[in-house]
Computed example of a mutant assay.
Amino acid sequence: MSDERLTDDALMTDTAERPRRGVKSYVLRAGRMTAAQNRGLEEVWPRLGLSVEDGLQDLDVLFGRRAPRVVEIGFGMGGSLIEQAEAHPDTDFIGIEVHAPGVGKLLDEADKRGLTNLRVYRDDALAVLTHCLPEASLDGLQLFFPDPWPKKKHHKRRIVQPAFVELVRTRLKPGGQLHMATDWQAYAEHMAEIMADAPGYRNTATDGPYVARPEFRPLTKFERRGAQLGHGVWDLIFVRAD
């Protein structure tokens, strides 16, 4: 499940409403670090790691080429993102994750596989979108299995809110995709409601708000286990329409 969550105390662009101060959509959790994860953070980070303090990026300079660009928010332990980067060498990927074990594991694995089309932020997603990624620079943004915050009193912590999807829209190219997936039906319905009211988007679904899982989204171990237990998964893909 995705571990990246939205913090609300970062600044937003003028195109998006600022969320309520102090409300966060993630909780930092302590965890043990393996030798491989420590290696990723210590040895690979200098080559593939990025920071909000680096400021606005020229993505062509960053990757040394012009190519399609996809951002994944909350890649967890990185398995899905690694699989995509390896399967699509002609696309550049940027992962955003706040938890050190996942960042370290992804960096270690990327190095072992010799991936050059992947960069990583260990920062808040909202800050990265606001300060580091140029407007109309992304071909896609992925948000897979974010924390559903199921209790009603915690719904304000959900990352999918009007201000967030508007900020994402400004970073997508016209025709760029916002792809979300969740295994919580109530959260899927929340996502669909937010997107139905979001200006400047078009739903790619033709029968209801959801689409079948596209082949390019890797099937995670978590998802396979859920399917065996009869759990559903809902995918939503919207494109920037203007």
Rank of each mutant, 00 (worst) to 15 (best):
T182K: 01
R217F: 11
H131G: 07
F238Y: 15
H131R: 15
F164C: 00
Y201P: 06
F222N: 02
H179K: 09
V160N: 00
R240N: 14
R224Q: 15
W149S: 05
F145N: 00
G232V: 12
A127S: 15
A127D: 13
A136Y: 03
I159L: 14
H190E: 10
K151V: 09
E215G: 08
A181F: 03
Q177C: 10
V233D: 02
A125W: 01
A198E: 11
Y210R: 02
L143W: 08
L167M: 13
T204N: 10
A192P: 01
A192V: 06
H231I: 13
K173Y: 06
T204F: 07
L143F: 12
E189P: 04
V239M: 01
P162L: 10
T130V: 07
R213F: 03
H179A: 09
L172T: 02
A125S: 09
G232A: 15
D124E: 14
P214D: 08
D124M: 08
K173D: 02
Q228P: 00
R240Q: 14
A205D: 12
I237W: 03
Q177S: 14
L229G: 15
R157I: 01
L138Y: 05
Y201G: 05
L172D: 08
R240D: 10
M191Y: 06
P214N: 09
L126E: 05
A227I: 13
P209V: 07
K156Y: 08
E189D: 15
H155R: 13
A125R: 04
Q185P: 01
P150Q: 09
I159G: 05
P134C: 08
E193N: 13
P146G: 09
P214C: 10
M180P: 01
G226N: 12
K173E: 04
D183P: 08
H155G: 04
H190V: 07
G176E: 00
H231N: 15
I237R: 14
W234S: 13
R217W: 11
D124I: 08
R169F: 02
H155T: 06
V233T: 13
L133V: 13
F144D: 01
D207F: 10
A212N: 13
K151G: 08
Y187I: 00
Y121I: 04
F222L: 09
D124K: 07
R224H: 14
Y201H: 12
P209C: 07
A198I: 14
I237Q: 11
K173A: 05
H190Y: 09
M191R: 04
P199W: 11
W149A: 06
K152M: 12
A163P: 01
W184K: 05
P150V: 07
D123Y: 03
D235R: 12
L143P: 02
K153A: 12
G200Y: 03
A125F: 00
H231G: 13
M195E: 06
G232N: 14
G200Q: 07
R169N: 06
F238H: 15
